[in-house]
């Protein structure tokens, strides 16, 4: 018995030594979306994931914030030429550029978030935002006293419709006759970074009776959350955990774990287990979730938590189907 455990221990030591040796030196890099690194939301999640990796392993990473289309390809190619790998391309707008650059550098590893690029050296990570939005919609519907809730999007593009569609389904699941006001912030890129207008839209929805407002609008959402908090109503954050932005006034946040995807890609590359292909991260994979922490614990009643947990299990089991806007470009709710 003792001999065996010793052998096991030895094998364990040998294995971990092997694992340590198998760790390859990597030079990771991140190219953000045009929204910019510190948006408290989508891009910042990628940054947080990369920072976490850096803290744990001491491996430095490079990053770049492009300001226009041409710079995306330029940045990807520059990182690739300097031998950076894996390179994370954050956001669907980088797909066309990545298609070109990844084909030019077949020996390097690339990861793209929110889009599928079908190449042997590209890992595509897409999220089931509709599932996460369904859960926060359910919570919004339950938390709402007026039966009216709001949604503030950035621009009227398919991705945001996908968020909105899942949200509406969740609200209706909680309150059959619940009403959802939807507004988009604008039609220029500033729509993603206009907290003042976001606040105005939230106020107008509150005037129409909404008492919970979900945003999917990047930096604009900061204004949405603030306006909801100022009016004594509730906001719902997106992408990153935004509960602490207005503690006690943010019902929850729809987490889209871009940080986990970034971290996992770096880690896998370091350990030599990095694989190309598509990963679709939904509730089941913990790719999307709703945030529960000290800042919002008081707002979530046990019934709400139970309902959200049940809905999560049902969606994973397939007994509840959340319609994905992207599947047919329709949202019939």
């Amino acid at each position: 018995m003792r001999v065996r455990s010793l052998a096991l221990a030895l094998a364990g030591v040998a294995f971990s030594a092997l694992a340590a040796m198998a760790q390859t030196a990597i030079k990771p890099a991140v190219v953000y979306d045009k929204g910019g690194k510190f948006d408290k939301s989508f891009n910042e999640a990628a940054f947080i994931g990369a920072e976490k990796f850096k803290k744990e392993t001491g491996v430095e990473f490079r990053d770049f914030e492009p300001t226009n289309e041409a710079q995306i390809e330029q940045a990807l190619r520059r990182f690739a030429r300097d031998g950076h790998s894996p390179i994370i391309a954050v956001g669907f707008s980088q797909a066309t550029a990545l298609q070109k650059v990844a084909a030019e550098f077949p020996d390097l590893k690339f990861t793209i978030i929110d889009m599928v690029v079908d190449l042997p050296n590209v890992q595509s990570v897409v999220f089931k935002e509709h599932e996460g939005s369904y859960l926060v919609g359910l919570l919004a519907g339950m938390a709402s006293k007026s039966g009216k809730v709001g949604f503030v999007g950035g621009m009227d593009i398919p991705l945001i419709r996908k968020f909105a569609c899942g949200y509406v389904q969740g609200v209706k699941a909680a309150k059959k006759d619940g009403e959802v006001f939807q507004n988009m912030t604008g039609s220029t890129p500033s729509a993603w970074n206009d907290p003042v207008k976001g606040g105005e839209l939230a106020k107008s929805q509150i005037d129409r009776g909404a008492d919970v407002i979900y945003h999917a609008a990047g930096g604009t959402g900061i204004g949405v959350l603030r306006a909801a908090a100022d009016a004594g109503k509730l906001g719902i954050g997106v992408d990153s955990n935004q509960n602490a932005l207005q503690p006690g006034k943010v019902l929850t946040s729809m987490l889209k774990r871009v940080d986990v995807a970034t971290y996992a890609s770096f880690k896998a590359a370091r350990e030599g287990s990095w694989k190309p292909g598509i990963s679709v991260l939904g509730l089941k994979e913990d790719g999307v979730a709703w945030a529960l922490d000290d800042a919002n614990r008081a707002l979530i009643t046990p019934e709400m938590k139970a309902a959200a947990d049940k809905a999560r299990d049902d969606i994973i089991a397939g007994t509840v189907k959340v319609h994905d806007y992207m599947s047919d470009s329709k949202c019939t709710m």
């Binding site: 669907f92 707008s93 797909a95 929110d114 889009m115 621009m155 009227d156 593009i157 398919p158 991705l159 039609s187 992207m326 470009s329």
Partner: peptide
């Protein structure tokens, strides 16, 4: 935005 999302857009693409 309207045309690229609803009319002229590439079907099934996130990008407008």
């Amino acid at each position: 935005v309207y045309l690229l999302v609803n009319v002229m857009g590439k079907p099934g693409s996130m990008q407008a």
